[in-house]
C-alpha cells in the first residue's frame, strides 16, 4: 500500500495539522518508507489470534459513584490562551 499526495493531504486534514503544499512530497516519501517497513507484518497469519489491547491484564476496579473532585474552575482556566471571564474564547462557529 502506498500513499499518494491526495491521501497525505487527507490524513493531515483528519489530524487537523496544516500542511504547506511544499511539504507534501517529502512527507509522502517518509510515510511510505515507514509503512513499507511495517508491511513485514503481512508475513504472519494472525487470523485466529485474539488482539491484545494492553498489558494490564486486570479487571477494572469499581468505585463508589460520588463526586471526589471539582470546584477548580480558575485552575482549569489558568492556562487558557484566550478567555473571557469564566469562558474559553474561540473564533465564531455559529453565524
Amino acid at each position: 500500500m502506498s500513499l499518494d499526495p491526495a491521501t497525505v493531504r487527507r490524513i493531515a486534514r483528519l489530524a487537523r495539522i496544516h500542511l504547506d503544499e511544499a511539504e507534501v512530497p517529502r512527507l509522502q516519501d517518509e510515510l511510505n518508507s515507514i509503512l513499507g517497513w511495517i508491511e513485514q507484518l503481512n508475513e504472519l497469519d494472525v487470523a485466529d489470534i485474539a488482539p491484545l489491547t494492553g498489558p494490564a491484564q486486570m479487571a477494572l476496579k469499581m468505585r463508589e459513584d460520588r463526586v471526589t473532585d471539582g470546584g477548580i474552575r480558575d485552575a482549569i482556566l489558568a492556562n487558557a490562551p484566550d478567555r473571557a471571564g469564566e469562558f474559553f474564547v474561540v473564533p465564531k462557529v455559529v453565524e
Binding site: R16, I17, H18, I76, N79, A80, P81, D82, F88, V90, P91, K92, V93
Partner: peptide, 19 residues
C-alpha cells in the same frame, strides 16, 4: 487544540485555528 491550554495560532475559523 489551542483552545484550553498551550500554544494558539489564530485562524479565521475554528478548523484553521486547530490546523
Amino acid at each position: 487544540d489551542g483552545v484550553r491550554f498551550g500554544l494558539r495560532e489564530e485562524g479565521t475559523d475554528l478548523t484553521q485555528l486547530y490546523e
